[in-house]
């Protein structure tokens, strides 16, 4: 992947999308192969240094929802703050910028337990942005959201990738949305696992074999799945 690209990982339940994300984030050891960031192996990075390269948005619920939006986003500055976590001017600016980008300024003082799922997801993305890394990994950022908010989040990710040149990789079940919004897609099918631009993947009929064929079929002309009657 290049910087400034938004890419989705697509695949059936249990194929290993989250495992891949967790491996890329160095949260678990890799089963096979090598991960390179800026042509340096992932395992050669120290935790503290890696925190300046990769930020994550996970599916786990927040442990403490008593934190305010601003407090959560501010935690994103931890890799840059001193031993006790005091903020410099630059840190405050970055936090403010992240809050601005995700339209969270009005909610800054709100505790997280008062937020809706969509708002909470925006907070977690803002936290990742405040961490100011070149790569952002997200595990199912759109699950639990309605269609409107799914599109809102994905469009936001796209603008973040394109406007401030971040490399963003996320797992999703929203194939049709990803087809319209992503620069690249990785289809996990336990075989070739094709990776490329959405239109190329469609042209190469990569979507036909993604799912078992007994319930749905892929319609190349519309770029959408149809229920098999």
């Amino acid at each position: 992947m290049q910087s400034g690209e938004l890419a989705a990982i697509i695949g059936v339940n249990g194929i290993g999308k989250s495992t891949l994300i967790r491996t890329l984030a160095n949260m678990q050891a890799s089963l096979k192969g090598q991960i390179l960031i800026n042509s340096k192996p992932l395992t050669a990075y120290k935790t503290a240094i890696l925190a300046k390269e990769i930020s994550v948005v996970l599916t786990n619920a927040l442990v403490s929802k008593n934190l305010s939006v601003q407090e959560v986003v501010t935690l994103g500055r931890q890799p840059y703050s001193n031993w006790i976590g005091s903020l410099k001017k630059e840190d405050k600016q970055k936090v403010n910028k992240a809050l601005d980008m995700l339209d969270l300024q009005k909610l800054a003082k709100t505790p997280c337990y008062e937020l809706s799922d969509g708002q909470l997801q925006r907070v977690m993305i803002a936290r990742a942005l405040a961490q100011d890394t070149s790569i952002i990994l997200l595990d199912e950022p759109t699950s639990h959201l309605d269609l409107y908010h799914k599109v809102q989040i994905l469009k936001l990710l796209k603008s973040i990738a394109h406007d401030i040149q971040k490399t963003i990789l996320f797992t999703s079940h929203e194939i049709e949305l990803a087809l319209q919004l992503c620069d690249k897609m990785l289809l996990l099918n336990n075989n070739e696992n094709p990776f490329g631009k959405p239109d190329e993947l469609v042209a190469h009929q990569a979507f036909e074999n993604l799912f078992p064929k007994d319930t749905i079929v892929f319609d190349t002309s519309t770029g959408a799945y149809r229920i098999k009657k």
Partner: peptide, 22 residues
């Protein structure tokens, strides 16, 4: 000394690790 990791733990261990906490 543990204030910073303690605050990071409020988001969960995975997040804490991703923010550079040992």
């Amino acid at each position: 000394i543990a204030i910073k990791p303690l605050n990071a733990f409020l988001l969960g261990e995975n997040y804490a690790q991703s923010m550079g906490v040992n």
